[in-house]
Design a protein around this nucleic acid. Structure first.
Lengths: 354, 354
DNA sequence: GTGAAAGCGCTAACAC
DNA sequence: GTGTTAGCGCTTTCAC
């Protein structure tokens, strides 16, 4: 009932007139094996509860050389996609009796390395590297420390990677955008712009390729000037759409916006136009936000399957180490389009590469 | 250059033909004090780098009985408010050379307790309890373990609490909503509804009180039926606004929506109405989301100052323990209203109670 | 300037 | 059925 310092098994042992090892085995559940008397166990448990005992996991981890920790680094917590990734990671980790530790690195490579080292110092048993800017350097750090790890969201070449199927998702989204152009226009010059993202980013590249493929399959000829990977920030996307608008003398026929952040900037511009004009443009967004569904014009979205990504990543960690570094692609989901257009259920049929 | 197991100071010592204590002091920065030769230190550091050494913080923590960890429990990660709270916590913790560990509890009291115990077991040096459903029980657990802790977002009576000034924020928001009713209506029966939240929740209570106060100061008589704390979930809010609409035969003159989650449900209903009808209603939301600014009708919002909350919480932890459990109220910010209506800058003039 | 040794709280092998 | 003991990797006197 008192407070002050945390009691140890020795404190409990003294009070129970017993020994540390007896107390330990009662308190960590191995007492059946040791054939401790139920009465002894009960007495010890009572004392422990009263004194507010809790196992010192640093000591336990040190002794067992098994910390029970799994770590994840993530660019930021304060972001819809990454926070749901983190949430899925936490839930999955706990379901497997691991203790999850999430750390954000603010997309800074030096910070990423420092954070990985910190996590390793805390003896994590495995590491999830999500959205890392330089996965292979981090892999090298992990390898030296003998830490199992896996890339999530952005692939690397030195460890297994689990990412969204950005290519197929973009392809599907491009088709959905075309499908959303209800009125057959009379003009010959139809245009669909791709806005947002960064040309050096793996996912952006895949999405532009999928975008191109989707359109070409429908008989379009994609003009390189349509692709405006002007960055991830909202204000950059806003500037870009404004430029496009003034160049074309109006909105394009379709808009493929890469990320909800860029979408924010685009909407900021679209709000300056009459709503009926906005509705002449078929709009899609790679990534999902519930509020986007609530805007006064329709938007098709691609939602990434964070739960599946995390589940696959844990699978790979659990599996016996194959020498290879597989790349697992997780299918995305199209939201807000006609049902007829959605991808058929692939039922875990994700491709495996490398 | 090899991998396998993590090297220890003994491994390094052997390779450096030196002793563990020398290696330790070189590697933890205390070597100047011990007057280790610069050459020795340099040699050791080189070996450590090559072998990819990293301090085992479990061992260090055990020995120094100082883990460097600070923990935070939070209802969910996947939520705009809480994820920014977590992000602010992380950043602030690291700035003070602590290692932050955030854990989500999904608003489940049993889970909260288990998580607090887990964090204590990991030897956190302090604990932030954010949005806890039962703070006082958690305080008791912390007290038994001798862990400093602090309530954030939702107050408790057994530990210091840092929360938003919900009352004043709601009062200001209520006034802003009234201010947003541009056209002086001819009807006598003006109505403003408060939608969302839970009547047993401290913050909701404060917000309803502030709502009432704000209106009464402007000469309104608040009808109890206006207050519809029908829960935090979107679909509940949607049902509520629909009911209100059919009872009134139209929208109320104003709407005070408690939380962005409830707001989602409200918007889902509002979208079924002609936009011009929606614009006859002056709408406010307690909590902020960037997409709400992008809807096709104006919404005033209250934004909570998570950085200040976290900073204050760390201040209290650093301060010498006063016997009391102060309640610190952090001012909120009004977004999207006329500048004239915003609260004057309070410049850290938050009230202190208890 | 550097090494030896004790001990942080726990577990596991070995006693009896 | 339960106690004793030797570490896990580190820090920190105390020796020399």
């Amino acid at each position: 009932m008192t407070n002050s310092k945390k009691p140890t098994i020795y404190d409990i042992a003294k009070e129970a007139q017993s020994s540390a090892s007896t107390v330990a085995s009662v308190l960590n559940g191995t007492w059946q094996k040791r054939r401790i008397k139920a009465a002894t166990a009960e007495a010890i448990r009572t004392i422990a509860t009263n004194r507010g005992y809790s196992t010192n996991l640093q000591a336990q981890g040190l002794r067992k050389s098994r910390s029970g920790l799994v770590g994840m680094i993530i660019p930021l917590l304060d972001n819809r996609f990454f926070s749901s990734l983190a949430q899925a990671f936490e839930t999955a980790a706990r379901a497997q009796d691991f203790y999850p530790v999430v750390a954000s690195t603010l997309r800074d490579p030096a910070n990423e390395q420092a954070t990985v080292r910190a996590l390793i110092s805390h003896n994590v048993e495995a590491l999830f590297l999500a959205g890392a800017t330089d996965p292979d350097t981090l892999s090298e750090i992990c390898r030296m420390a003998g830490i199992k790890h896996i890339n999530v969201d952005l692939p690397g070449s030195k460890a297994p990677s689990v990412i969204s199927d950005n290519f197929s998702g973009a392809e599907t989204l491009a088709r959905a955008i075309v499908d959303g152009m209800r009125l057959p226009r009379t003009t010959n010059r139809r245009t669909i712009y791709f806005i947002g993202g960064f040309a050096g980013d793996h996912n952006t590249v895949q999405r532009t390729l999928g975008f191109r493929k989707g359109l070409e399959e429908l008989g379009w000829t994609v003009d390189p000037s349509w692709i405006r990977t002007s960055g991830f920030e909202a204000h950059l996307a806003e500037t870009t759409i404004r430029e496009v608008y003034s160049q074309l003398g109006g909105l394009p026929d379709g808009l493929f916006v890469n990320s909800t952040i860029a979408f924010e900037g685009v909407v900021r511009f679209l709000k300056t136009l009459p709503i009926d004009e906005v509705r002449t443009c078929s709009i899609g967004c790679f990534d999902w936000d519930p509020y986007i569904e609530l805007l006064h014009f329709p938007v098709v979205m691609v939602r990434q399957n964070v739960h599946k990504m995390i589940a696959e990543a844990f699978n790979i960690l659990a599996a016996p180490r194959s020498g290879r570094s597989p790349l697992i692609l997780i299918p995305t989901e199209l939201i807000g389009a006609d049902a007829s257009l959605r991808e058929p259920e692939t039922g875990g049929l994700e491709r495996r590469g490398r």
